[in-house]
Design a binder for these strands. Structure first.
Lengths: 292, 292
DNA sequence: TCTAATTGATAACCCATAGGCATTAATTAA
DNA sequence: TTAATTAATGCCTATGGGTTATCAATTAGA
């Protein structure tokens, strides 16, 4: 009876909680189904709470199980991070900060930030990962990221958001296009062209903004293609598949075979924000925040 | 070689980190010293970091070990709390909130708060513990308390503090004392009496304030006794050992055989504050904060 | 300087238990 | 009904956590 809870129990519990299926979870864990069943049962006995409802043919989480799953996700991430941090400290480093970012942040503010931080904290290591707005929110939530660079208007209430850079929008055209700096006055001039946009699931705010820019000028853009990568969008424009509207700062950092025309007289701005969580325990986060 | 870290390793590590002595730690864990040595060594191999320096005759933590100890303290508290919370949810309760408080908070604001919260969240359970300012700060830090009711001016930077109640000070006198509401105009009138104060290690802000009240009136109090309990202080005053200065609200809730005279014309206020940490993951904390 | 005591690490053995296999009971789909 | 699929049980094995005995290294004391 004097059993102890171990991380093993937690690992197994999370596998079953995710699969909601003992056999599949067992496969994923490379152990047998009976062994898994027994460990879960033991865990339920130790805690004294039923975590799964084995109702007829399907397995579901109880309320207590749902709560426990959330917390254990967090706890595992925190343990992983702690061990990583322990290794870094052992090697004389001051720590690691995990950064998520939209591709478009890599052109302007992010590189500067990295250089500045590195100058002040040469032993701080970065883990950089390009990901979509929503994946970043999720990862920050789960303590898989310390900070995210996103284009979002709102975030869950337990998270913090701060706008750090405001950019204008530019029209992206093939080099041979008739419009140029001299004769371009309004987006209306390309209302008949095909539009290439960032996917709305990559950044819905951006998508909505492009739509409202066009609406304000009295037309609805014909969207022919969508992509999540700036590079791809430029390639499509270059190849004559249409035109695009992107944050102006994206013109730097690529070997462009397209031309950028900054759009005049519009209210919409491309805002880049940072998101983070107050309950983050990484001391390096506070050092980073000083630079923002 | 394919060993896994388990909670067992963490438990053992913390024991050695606290005792800094393998044999004593082993005794505390009710296992043998060689067994413990092996597990610690295994843990160091798995993480890949030396956690202890077995320098000659004494054991000390490495930098990485110190960091890991702090984080594991937090992680264990969090796991304990999570399991407790899981059991409460299982029983249909909404959760538990752990409250620390100074005795003097039990007279005024705390009872009201408890009643109000209970009205809105009848299933929320309280764990109440009377403790000193500094123990509360420490306990909040370690995630052993969710919220503390203290009299402090400053707290560590990663903690939050908010003043929720401001009280005047009163002079406490034996019933037979010559001063009364009619003829009491200044603390100066008791400058020759012996003073009984709260111990400075219980609340140094309070102690300093009393001293500054007297200084402002041009004298230094002769302190004859100190105590951590209001009840004791009243008893001493009643028995003629001297006079005291305490927050006015302390006159409620005791069966008093002393008289309170509110001190006029002083700037000092007895401030009661709540402290908590932003990285607290107890959802009930947010519900409580709405009442403050 | 020599001895006794105390430290953590090693070596060899033991047994508790995590996990495997075979099987069962219960349900559903055909 | 049969066949298929679910999680739980019973029994067994072997990994590895914990034991005792011992060692090497250091320190305190005479």
């Amino acid at each position: 009876m004097g059993y102890q809870l171990e991380l093993r129990h937690f690992t197994y519990f999370l596998a079953v909680a995710e699969e909601l299926h003992f056999r599949k979870a067992a496969e994923r864990l490379y152990i047998s189904q009976p062994g898994l069943s027994r460990q879960i049962k033991q865990m339920e006995e130790i805690i004294g709470v039923e975590l799964f409802l084995r109702d007829k043919r399907k397995v579901t989480l109880t309320n207590a199980g749902v709560y426990l799953k959330n917390e254990l996700d967090y706890i595992f991430n925190h343990i992983d991070f702690t061990l990583k941090q322990t290794r870094l400290i052992d090697q004389g480093s001051e720590g690691e900060i995990r950064v998520g970012f939209l591709g478009s942040a890599m052109q302007t503010i992010l590189p500067e930030l990295l250089v500045n931080v590195n100058k002040e904290y040469p032993n701080l290591q970065f883990s950089l990962e390009e990901m979509s707005n929503y994946l970043q929110v999720d990862a920050v939530q789960k303590d898989q990221l310390d900070i995210g660079f996103v284009r979002l208007a709102r975030v869950p209430k337990e998270m913090q958001i701060k706008t750090i850079h405001t950019d204008t929008f530019s029209l992206v055209l093939p080099l041979e296009h008739l419009l140029n700096v001299g004769n371009f006055v309004s987006v209306q001039q390309v209302s008949d062209e095909q539009f290439i946009l960032f996917s709305s699931d990559y950044s819905s705010v951006y998508y909505d903004q492009i739509m409202s820019i066009c609406e304000d000028k009295g037309f609805t853009p014909k969207v022919s293609h969508k992509s999540v990568h700036a590079q791809t969008i430029f390639k499509l424009v270059e190849s004559g598949f249409g035109v695009a509207i992107v944050p102006t700062s994206l013109q730097y950092g690529f070997d462009l075979k397209v031309k950028f025309l900054e759009i005049p007289e519009i209210l919409q701005k491309a805002e880049l924000s940072v998101i983070w969580k107050n309950d983050n325990r990484n001391p390096a986060l506070r050092q980073i925040m000083k630079f923002l």
